[in-house]
C-alpha cells in the first residue's frame, strides 16, 4: 500500500513518540488564544489563566526556549490587582477594539489586502475554507470572518479532528485534517500573524501584550506540528 503523505507524517509522529497530549496542548493553546481575543479585555481575569496554562504546558514539552520568558510574563500578571486588570482592559481595547482607531486591528485582511480594510478577498477566502468543513462564523456578515479569534478556533478545530481521527485509527481522516490545518496556516494565519504581532509590539508598553504576541506567533506556526 502506498503511504500517503499524511500517514508518513503520523508514522513519524509515532516514531518521535509524540504523545497525544502534545496535540491536545497545541489545541488548548489555540483555543485559549481564541478566547483571549474573543472575550475581550474585560474578561482577561478569566482568559489569562487558561492561556498561561496552555502556553506553559507546551513550553515544557517542547516549546522554544525564547517562549519561556513570555510565559513567565503571563504568569506574573495572573494575580494582578483589579486596578492592573482594569488598565489591561483599557490597553486591550486601545490595541484591538476601539473606539479610537485600534493600533492592531485583529483582522487578516487589514494586513494583507492592498486596501488595508476589513471584508476583503482574504475574508472571503477564509469564509470559503470554513465552508469546506461545513462551518461558518456565527456573526457572518457582521464580524469579519478573518477575525483572529475565529481563525484560531478553526485551527483548533482542525487539529482536534485530526487528533480524534487518529485516536479512531482513521488515518486518512487524520491526514485530511492535518493537511487542511497546514493549508490554512500557510495560506492565512502565517501570512499575517507576524505583521499583527509587530503591530502589537510597536504599539504597547505592556509586557503582557508583547509576550502574548510572541506566544501567538509561535503557537500558530504549522511547523509546530511537524
Amino acid at each position: 500500500m502506498v503511504q500517503t503523505k499524511g500517514e508518513v507524517f503520523l508514522m513519524r509522529e509515532c516514531a518521535e513518540q509524540r504523545t497525544l497530549e502534545k496535540y491536545q496542548a497545541k489545541i488548548n493553546l489555540l483555543l485559549a488564544l481564541s478566547r483571549f481575543f474573543d472575550q475581550g479585555g474585560e474578561q482577561l481575569p478569566k482568559t489569562l489563566e487558561p492561556l498561561n496554562k496552555a502556553a506553559a504546558v507546551l513550553v515544557q514539552s517542547e516549546g522554544p526556549k525564547e517562549l519561556e520568558s513570555a510565559v513567565k510574563i503571563l504568569e506574573e500578571y495572573l494575580n494582578s490587582s483589579p486596578e492592573v486588570y482594569q488598565a489591561l482592559t483599557y490597553e486591550f481595547n486601545r490595541l484591538f477594539v476601539g473606539p479610537a482607531a485600534p493600533k492592531a486591528p485583529p483582522y487578516e485582511s487589514v494586513y494583507r489586502s492592498a486596501e488595508g480594510l476589513v471584508m476583503q478577498e482574504q475574508t472571503l477566502a477564509v469564509r470559503k475554507m470554513y465552508l469546506r468543513e461545513g462551518l461558518h462564523s456565527q456573526e457572518q456578515g457582521h464580524e469579519p470572518d478573518d477575525f483572529i479569534g475565529t481563525e484560531l478556533e478553526f485551527m483548533a478545530y482542525l487539529l482536534s479532528r485530526a487528533l480524534s481521527s487518529q485516536q479512531e485509527q482513521n488515518l486518512s481522516a487524520a491526514q485530511y485534517y492535518l493537511e487542511l490545518h497546514r493549508e490554512f496556516c500557510s495560506k492565512h494565519m502565517e501570512q499575517w500573524v507576524e505583521a499583527f504581532a509587530q503591530a502589537i509590539g510597536r504599539s504597547t508598553d505592556y509586557p503582557l501584550f508583547t509576550a502574548l504576541s510572541k506566544i501567538l506567533v509561535a503557537g500558530t506556526q504549522s511547523s509546530f506540528c511537524k
Partner: peptide, 21 residues
C-alpha cells in the same frame, strides 16, 4: 460538532445548508 468529535465552538458554527463556496 462535526463528525464524532466533540468540539466546543464559540465563534464558528455548523452550517445548516450545504457548503457552497
Amino acid at each position: 460538532a462535526a463528525g464524532a468529535a466533540l468540539f466546543n465552538f464559540n465563534l464558528l458554527t455548523k452550517s445548516v445548508t450545504a457548503a457552497d463556496d
